[in-house]
Design a protein around this nucleic acid. Sequence first.
DNA 1: ATTAATCAATTAAACGTTTGTTTAATTCAA
DNA 2: TTGAATTAAACAAACGTTTAATTGATTAAT
Lengths: 217, 217
Amino acid sequence: MADKREHILVVAEELFAEKGFDGTSVRDIAQQAGVNLAMISYYFGSKEKLLESLLEFRAGYAYGILEELNQDQSLSPWDKIDRLVDFYVDRILNNLRFHNIMYQESSTRSEEIRIKAKDIKLRNLEQISKIITDGQQKGLFRQVDIPLTVGTIMGTISSYTLSKFYTCAILALNEDVDDELYRLRLSPRLKAHLKQLLRAHLDIHNDSLPPNRLKGL
Amino acid sequence: MADKREHILVVAEELFAEKGFDGTSVRDIAQQAGVNLAMISYYFGSKEKLLESLLEFRAGYAYGILEELNQDQSLSPWDKIDRLVDFYVDRILNNLRFHNIMYQESSTRSEEIRIKAKDIKLRNLEQISKIITDGQQKGLFRQVDIPLTVGTIMGTISSYTLSKFYTCAILALNEDVDDELYRLRLSPRLKAHLKQLLRAHLDIHNDSLPPNRLKGL
DNA sequence: ATTAATCAATTAAACGTTTGTTTAATTCAA
DNA sequence: TTGAATTAAACAAACGTTTAATTGATTAAT
């Protein structure tokens, strides 16, 4: 075992996402990670600080990708939106555990954790904002509420990753389908929907749309 | 106290939403509700069955409203979409507690609870589906992924109701703002965003949009 | 009308687990 | 030999649930 500390974090991540923070005992984590119970206090200080460490451990990754995507001059804003959707769907579906902790569990915890989670989200929002404002400056995107648009992306995905039961019903899958097939079905559908949605939402040509609403009547 | 059972449910709802299911003890509920600890087992059987009772207690309301909205012949599909957005934003913001339980907490619980939560969601989806397919049949709405569109509505709202810390940062509000002002700021912004979003997303005129994407380049 | 019986409502206390954390001893490598 | 890593054991506190006793109002018998 290369890094025991990191291994504990990965195991804790899985368990937290599966059973919730309060629903997971330190003994669960220790046993699943194959380490002594006392090692968790020894490494992290407490269960709450373990969660804090987990946030730090995972925080950097998404930001790096977004930054890179942002600086890529060869991609049009539309391409970047598509890539953004692909990235987030893939990332969330492949890191369901961490995502659930980050977006639901952390909001009921200590102030330090809530602040940390907030800051991570704000940093990511900043990067996505740049992509959208760039598209606006280039005359491709219309005026939209950017933070809420980001909320729409994350929220749409989350609404289908929080409850496997409901999602399986929608996808016409058996409830105990294996994770591989589950992702395989959900991923393209989420991506297609979000791209179609954002295309219409962001397109500059739709700026004159609101008054047209009554056309069809 | 008219109905003690119901009073316990309301108190439990508040506490669950605030501190999570596992984070709330039966003693917390009993104390806050002003009843003896044993009354909760006496009334509901167990803590889990209390949550189950809570779901049943709250489930009926939304469905009734949606059904009514659906059957209203005087409203156009576009009007119904607007009303739908208004309803859900208001309802979720005014029942933050129950919504958080229903959409996050219930997914990590017993099978019975997960099934119950799933069924409630499916029933509501059914009603919203009718509104959208009606708009499609009337030639107003284009072809969209209806269940995912519903996920977008719920998810967008949820993404801003799960973490008050983050939301306050976005709204440029102090973190300990009172709930009244908090809702007053968040509600119109969510409604405006969702209506603008759905207008573009659903409009039949956008069916020919995808190939136009490259226009701006 | 008074008493007796019945049963649900309510209570305080205790149940056995499980919780997060700490201690104090031991291992092991530097 | 020093100090970090690791261990088993113990800690008190909190957990969900149960018990057994008591209350209080309603019903049946006297």
